[in-house]
Design a protein around this nucleic acid. Structure first.
Lengths: 219, 219
DNA sequence: CTAATATGTTAGAATGATCTAACAAAATAT
DNA sequence: ATATTTTGTTAGATCATTCTAACATATTAG
């Protein structure tokens, strides 16, 4: 049996690995807001349970078993987010915190029902892929908006950071998934982009924002 | 702050008090499946938090504050049950276990939304009243079917025990809330009742079952 | 290449929730 | 009204999760 606490470590490790590649104790510690010695001992415990490969002073890595467990938790998290957004009328900026609490519910039926009522969705309200019933994630390779060039026409496919503040910022600019935008120009000194979309005047998006927006290039 | 564990004790104490009146350490211990010494120490802790009146060897009683907190948890529990049954298609026999896990979610918005989507229901799928936003319960005084007389025409208003087995038993007899039934006769030796309803042949209901069925008398 | 800084581990303590064993009080039965 | 049973408490242990303090290893900078 995996405790709620262990689930949180697995999920954080999974997400961090995908965001930054190599994860170390310090990184996981900061991501979870838990001190390093506690992380070290939990890593040892999870290593005994064959969920992580742990060796002193080496980067942390999930085993296949650990990846599967983490994937299943993230599946629940994303199904919940989708349900809250699609079936209950919550905005994409409000679903994360609730899903964070509900993801630990143990009920195969509840999540099967959500999945069914939602029509077996492939992505959550932020465009992140929903892992399948085996915890496997179908990675979709989008581009970061910040990596695009002047003149590119792109479609907003996903957002990386799901913090309420960031999503509220996007709301205030009427930006949502599926939005088509054109890159008018890029400032060389700070890498900010001047973009236009909808029938709004062209506006600047900082590099910080552009790095967090995943897009599909339109031909 | 009230921990999840404390919430479980408060809820159990609230429910037991309503079912059997005076609650003692032994009763609470059995209801929770937790040994007596653990219950004693939790009662002391909850007494310090002004949630229960605790005196050695005396019956356990919730304070007003404790009643309010317990009522709010039960409000969440029953709203969840109603949501699962009404909006997600679960049967009344399946909602309890899921609600038991979800009731600890802390999100005013989630429960406000459920309440709204359900149209501010007054009772849960088992006919139990949903406490208001202050945790207050509007008690409805139904009769136990077992207290009715031969010839009475009654309507099934609520079920007391919400165990899956009992509810599946009721399902198998096509019994649900709102069902009208007539008491044809009562066996003196075991107090079982012969009742008829719908277009089914008259059938016997044991006293155990009749004690768990709450009804409204029809004129 | 050493010194400074960042990262990681060990040891030991604290807290919350649980238990068992032993003792104490209250209720019940003979 | 005493003996027995049931109920309740105290004391002390265990386990999970967290912490701080001290020490150890890696990495980075001068």
């Amino acid at each position: 049996m995996i405790s709620r606490t262990e689930e949180n470590y697995l999920k954080a490790l999974f997400n961090l690995s995908n965001e930054i590649g190599e994860v170390n104790v310090n990184g996981l510690s900061k991501a979870l807001g838990i001190k390093m010695p506690t992380v070290t001992s939990m890593m040892k415990k999870l290593a005994e349970k064959k969920m992580v490969h742990y060796e002193s002073y080496k980067p942390l890595k999930l085993t296949e078993k650990g990846k599967k467990e983490a994937g299943l938790i993230i599946r629940k998290h994303r199904l919940i987010e989708m349900f809250l957004a699609e079936k209950m009328g919550f905005g994409w900026e409000d679903v994360h915190d609730i899903a964070e609490q509900m993801e630990h519910v143990q009920s195969v039926e509840l999540f099967a029902k959500m999945d069914e009522l939602l029509g077996f969705p492939k992505v959550d309200p932020h465009g992140s892929p929903i892992p399948d019933k085996n915890g496997k994630v179908a990675w979709i390779d989008y581009n970061r908006l910040s990596d695009c060039k002047t003149g590119d026409n792109v479609k907003l496919a996903a957002v990386i950071n799901t913090s309420t503040e960031f999503l509220k910022f996007l709301n205030s600019r009427e930006m949502k998934l599926g939005l088509k935008l054109k890159i008018k120009s890029i400032e060389t000194f700070d890498h900010s982009m001047i973009v236009s979309y909808g029938n709004r005047p062209a506006q600047a998006l900082s590099d910080t924002v552009c790095k967090r927006l995943m897009v599909e290039k339109l031909k």
